[in-house]
Deep mutational scan, measured.
Amino acid sequence: VPQRAWTVEQLRSEQLPKKDIIKFLQEHGSDSFLAEHKLLGNIKNVAKTANKDHLVTAYNHLFETKRFK
């Protein structure tokens, strides 16, 4: 089981690129989880459509539901 890579403050910070969060989610989330949160596909394309709040919610949801690969 992966550990949380970032704190809530870090997740919301401008310093953390959306692409980093997407990469983490794609590496650790199950396909059904990723599909549900519309996070499947090319990281660049996902970054265009997903806002930061959406990614933070998905990140927290992944750990709450433990839907890891």
Rank of each mutant, 00 (worst) to 15 (best):
P2A: 04
P2Q: 04
P2I: 07
P2M: 05
P2V: 07
P2D: 04
P2G: 04
Q3C: 15
Q3K: 14
Q3W: 05
R4V: 05
R4D: 12
R4A: 06
R4F: 09
A5G: 11
A5P: 15
A5N: 15
A5V: 14
A5F: 13
W6H: 09
W6Q: 06
W6P: 08
T7G: 05
T7L: 04
T7V: 03
V8K: 05
V8R: 03
V8P: 15
V8E: 15
V8C: 14
E9L: 04
L11Q: 02
L11W: 02
L11C: 03
R12A: 12
R12W: 15
S13N: 06
S13T: 03
S13I: 03
S13D: 11
S13A: 04
E14M: 08
E14I: 09
E14K: 14
E14C: 10
Q15Y: 11
Q15K: 14
Q15C: 12
Q15V: 07
L16Y: 05
L16K: 03
L16S: 03
L16P: 09
L16R: 04
L16I: 15
L16M: 06
P17K: 12
P17I: 06
P17H: 14
K18H: 08
K18G: 10
K18W: 03
K19H: 15
K19I: 14
D20R: 13
D20F: 07
D20E: 13
I21R: 00
I21K: 00
I22S: 01
I22P: 00
K23Y: 06
K23G: 07
F24V: 04
F24S: 02
F24I: 02
L25M: 07
L25T: 00
L25E: 00
L25V: 03
Q26C: 05
Q26R: 11
E27W: 05
E27N: 09
H28V: 10
H28D: 00
H28C: 08
H28W: 15
H28Y: 13
H28K: 06
G29E: 00
G29M: 01
G29P: 00
G29K: 00
S30N: 10
S30V: 05
S30E: 10
D31M: 13
S32P: 08
S32L: 09
S32D: 12
S32M: 09
S32C: 14
S32V: 08
F33E: 01
F33H: 01
F33A: 00
L34K: 05
L34D: 00
L34E: 00
A35Y: 13
E36P: 02
E36T: 07
E36L: 10
E36G: 08
E36K: 07
H37P: 00
H37I: 03
H37R: 10
K38H: 13
K38T: 07
K38A: 12
L39S: 00
L39W: 01
L40C: 14
L40D: 11
G41C: 05
G41N: 04
G41M: 04
G41A: 05
G41V: 03
G41Q: 04
N42T: 13
N42H: 12
N42S: 11
I43A: 09
I43G: 06
K44V: 14
N45L: 14
N45W: 15
N45F: 15
V46C: 06
V46E: 03
V46R: 06
V46H: 04
A47T: 13
A47Y: 07
A47I: 13
K48C: 12
K48Y: 12
K48Q: 14
T49F: 14
A50D: 03
A50V: 15
A50P: 04
N51G: 10
N51S: 13
N51D: 14
N51F: 07
N51Q: 09
N51T: 12
N51H: 09
K52F: 06
K52V: 06
K52Q: 05
D53E: 14
D53Y: 07
H54L: 10
H54Y: 06
L55Q: 00
L55E: 00
L55N: 00
V56A: 10
V56M: 05
V56P: 00
V56D: 02
V56R: 03
V56C: 06
T57V: 13
T57D: 13
T57F: 14
T57C: 14
A58L: 05
A58Q: 03
A58W: 03
A58E: 01
A58N: 02
Y59G: 01
Y59M: 02
Y59L: 03
H61S: 14
H61Q: 12
H61D: 15
H61L: 12
L62T: 00
L62D: 00
F63E: 01
F63I: 03
E64S: 08
E64N: 08
E64V: 10
T65Q: 12
T65H: 14
T65V: 05
T65I: 04
K66Q: 10
K66M: 11
R67G: 07
R67P: 03
R67Y: 05
F68C: 03
F68D: 02
K69E: 04
K69W: 06
K69Q: 07
K69P: 05
K69F: 05
K69G: 06
